[in-house]
């Protein structure tokens, strides 16, 4: 399956740029869901031998990142009656530009770090795409007004970290990986609850308006 590895990573990168460029919330969530599915597939693709645990992790990843969490987000989106607006703090084009520059910087940064000889040649894209995805997540967190979009940003950030974990199959333990995934789910679940409360209290989910606590 490892021949699927690079194409999947490239699709992750493309999805990053899509998230940055999309103006509709629904498509942003959809893109993140697709990214989740891609990650699940990547887990399988990264292993030479497909074992039960690998399948389990992949399934959990797809289930959580590709299905459950996007569902949760869609539900939240419906609850708070948002139709489409992503409402970036900076324009979509500048977001894309920064995203592209970030991806380039990620490649450069990944080159400065030594890589083991035993490392799969096919894994060469792992580090840059991981860094780029993390950066994209941060960018979404920092530049999007809506609370839900920020959650998506956090999700993408976690996706990036997950990708990096893929490169470390020798060292990581599945128990921990599953724990991480569960933690992520709980975190997003709690965030969803809070967003719900926010909507009820403030009648908005614009995170930029939550700024009464300041100096």
């Amino acid at each position: 399956m490892s021949h699927l590895f690079d194409p999947l990573l490239v699709s992750v990168l493309l999805l990053n740029l899509f998230v940055l460029g999309a103006s509709r919330l629904r498509s942003v969530i959809g893109a993140s869901a697709l990214q989740g599915v891609a990650l699940g597939l990547l887990t399988v693709a990264a292993h030479d031998h497909i074992t039960f645990t690998v399948t389990l992790v992949a399934l959990i990843a797809i289930g959580l990142k590709g299905v459950l969490i996007p569902k949760l987000l869609y539900k939240a989106m419906r609850d708070v009656a948002i139709v489409r607006d992503v409402e970036p703090l900076i324009g979509l084009i500048p977001s894309l530009a920064i995203g592209a520059v970030g991806t380039g910087a990620s490649v450069i940064f990944a080159r400065t770090l030594p890589v083991a000889d035993s490392y799969h040649a096919s894994l060469a894209l792992v580090l840059p795409s991981s860094f780029a995805t993390v950066l994209t997540g941060c960018l979404v967190l920092v530049t999007r007004r809506k609370a839900i979009t920020q959650v998506v940003g956090y999700l993408i950030l976690e996706n990036g970290i997950f990708i990096m974990g893929l490169g470390l199959i020798e060292a990581t333990t599945f128990l921990v990986e599953i724990g991480v995934l569960l933690d992520l789910f709980v975190a997003i679940f709690v965030m969803g609850i809070i967003i719900n409360h926010v909507r009820r209290e403030f009648e908005t989910t614009d995170a930029a308006e939550l700024s009464s606590l300041k100096e």
């Binding site: 770090l113 967190l141 956090y154 990581t172 809070i194 926010v198 995170a207």
Partner: peptide, 29 residues
């Protein structure tokens, strides 16, 4: 809300960093 988001981002970076540390081992064989 702020606590959750900033904290989660922080903790995510902590995980990221942990993977860096693992890479430090893995990539030196």
């Amino acid at each position: 809300w702020k606590y959750l988001l900033i904290g989660s981002v922080g903790v995510a970076f902590a995980l990221f960093g942990s993977f860096f540390l693992a890479s430090a081992a893995v990539h030196n064989g």
